[in-house]
Computed example of a mutant assay.
Amino acid sequence: MLRAATRVAHHRLERRLGLPGVLRGLDDYRAVLRGMHGFHAPLEEALQAHPGLRAALPDLTARRKLPGLGADLRDLGAPVPARRAPIPDLATTARALGAAYVVEGATLGGAGISRHVRATLPDPAPQAVRFLAPYGGQTGPMWRRFQEALAAHDDDPDETVGAAQETFAALEDWLETEGVLR
């Protein structure tokens, strides 16, 4: 249900972001990672601090993306941006799960994009893919565990869907503001 309910927002963001095709060089890759950092920093901090989400996802700490994202930026010689995006309301566990769905779902596409970066961009980009492929060979199992947690905590599906849609919209707005979208 969540996938179907967010399909339009997901495809729109994906189309506007244009990955991996827009990654023609290191400057393009740096710009995308800087934009992602500005959004993921406040969102991940809020998700990590959410007690209901911690209970729903016991492996929440292992799902952190910011350390890898910061390391990727440093490897590419780019400063970690200080600007931070506004994020959706995460007042309930259902809403936190909706936002987490967007972040976790991105890891599936990120694996393919990381292969493109490794194959086409010059050094040091091939090593700077921790954000795109944070789970390595565990992407599939991590996604399945997330889906199980989502199904087990399906108390308010309307809130979950609403938060996921708002998260896609907030990410799109932020990346537009940062000049990352086409």
Rank of each mutant, 00 (worst) to 15 (best):
V117E: 06
R118V: 12
D59K: 10
P81H: 01
G110N: 10
A41G: 05
A149S: 15
A96E: 11
A164G: 07
P88Q: 04
L132K: 02
L2N: 10
H11D: 15
P58F: 05
L26R: 13
E159I: 05
G98A: 04
A56T: 10
L17F: 05
F168C: 00
G18S: 12
Q138I: 01
K65V: 06
G179E: 14
K65S: 03
R3P: 00
G70Q: 15
V180Y: 06
E166A: 15
L69E: 02
P134F: 10
L171I: 12
A128I: 07
T177Y: 06
L175W: 08
E148F: 00
H116V: 03
L43E: 09
P126Q: 06
G162M: 05
R115D: 04
A31G: 09
F146V: 00
R74Q: 11
E178Q: 11
A169M: 03
A55I: 03
D59H: 03
W143Y: 09
H116I: 02
G77I: 07
H116T: 06
G18T: 10
T61E: 15
L150S: 01
P58K: 04
E172W: 06
I87W: 01
W174Y: 11
D123M: 07
L60H: 10
G136H: 09
V117L: 02
E159S: 13
A164Y: 07
G18A: 11
P79W: 02
A46E: 13
R7Y: 02
A62R: 14
D59F: 06
L150Q: 13
G136Y: 09
D154M: 00
R83F: 02
R34G: 07
A9D: 12
A82Q: 08
R7K: 12
D72L: 10
R145L: 14
L57E: 11
L76G: 04
A149N: 03
A125N: 04
H40M: 15
A149C: 10
H11M: 10
E104V: 11
G35F: 10
L17S: 07
G136Q: 08
D75T: 13
L13C: 05
A78C: 03
L19C: 07
L60D: 09
G136V: 08
A62H: 13
L19T: 10
R34D: 00
Q48W: 06
A96Q: 12
G137K: 11
R34T: 13
Q165Y: 01
A31H: 12
Q147F: 05
A46Y: 09
R115C: 01
P88Y: 03
A31Q: 14
T160C: 08
I113L: 09
P67W: 11
A56K: 04
L76K: 03
G70D: 14
E172G: 11
Q165I: 06
P67T: 14
T120C: 07
D89H: 10
D156Q: 14
L47I: 11
H10L: 00
A169L: 08
A133Y: 15
L97K: 02
P67I: 13
R130C: 10
A164L: 14
Q127H: 12
L17W: 06
G70C: 12
T139W: 08
V8T: 12
R3G: 05
